[in-house]
Amino acid sequence: MRASINRPPTPDAEEDKEKELTLQEIINVKLIESGEKERLKELLRERLIECGWRDEMKALCRAFSRKKGRNNVTVDDLVNVITPKGRASVPDSVKAELLQRIRTFLVSVAL
């Protein structure tokens, strides 16, 4: 920031660039403002339960807990072990459906 005695500080060009939102951030804001993000999360939750993904993740957590000992497992341990497996095992059909819903939303808000 540059300042002088007679005027308030003016932002530098570099600081202005930092404040500009990325396309991803703009989309996220639009999703939140419209309530579509919550609807997409609920749809994802339903689809993952329907396909058995949630039960599979529960079983992996239980197996990991038994292996390490129930008192020796933290939530962070579970997250670190299960997250990569969980992301990799989401069915392609669920991913495709969500992607299509996001595309439809983006077309409707004319981004």
Rank of each mutant, 00 (worst) to 15 (best):
D77G: 05
A63V: 09
D76S: 09
A3L: 13
D76F: 06
Q100R: 14
A13T: 08
N72A: 11
R45T: 06
N6M: 10
K85E: 12
I32E: 07
C51D: 02
S93W: 05
C51H: 06
K37Y: 04
E50Q: 07
L31V: 01
A88G: 12
T22Y: 09
I27V: 10
S34F: 07
I27L: 12
V81T: 08
E33I: 00
L60G: 00
T10I: 15
S108G: 04
R54N: 09
D92L: 14
M1W: 05
E50Y: 00
L78C: 07
G52M: 06
S34W: 00
I49E: 07
E20K: 14
L21D: 05
V107L: 13
K41Q: 13
S108Y: 04
G35E: 00
S4T: 14
F105W: 00
R70K: 14
E46F: 04
N28T: 15
V73W: 03
K30L: 11
K58P: 03
D76H: 01
Q100G: 07
N6K: 01
V73E: 00
L106C: 10
I27R: 06
E14I: 10
A63K: 14
N71E: 15
E36Q: 12
N80C: 01
N71W: 09
R47L: 12
E46Y: 07
E14K: 05
T74D: 01
F105I: 06
S34P: 02
A3K: 13
L48Q: 03
I32R: 00
R2F: 15
I49D: 09
V94H: 00
L48S: 05
K68C: 09
I5N: 09
R2D: 07
L43A: 12
N6Y: 10
P91S: 03
V94N: 01
A63L: 08
R7G: 11
L48R: 05
F105Q: 03
P9W: 01
D92E: 04
K95S: 03
V73I: 12
P9G: 09
K41G: 06
K37C: 05
E97D: 14
A96L: 14
C51A: 01
G52E: 02
E38L: 11
R66V: 14
I49L: 13
K67H: 11
L40M: 08
N80F: 02
A13G: 06
P9E: 08
R62I: 15
G52I: 02
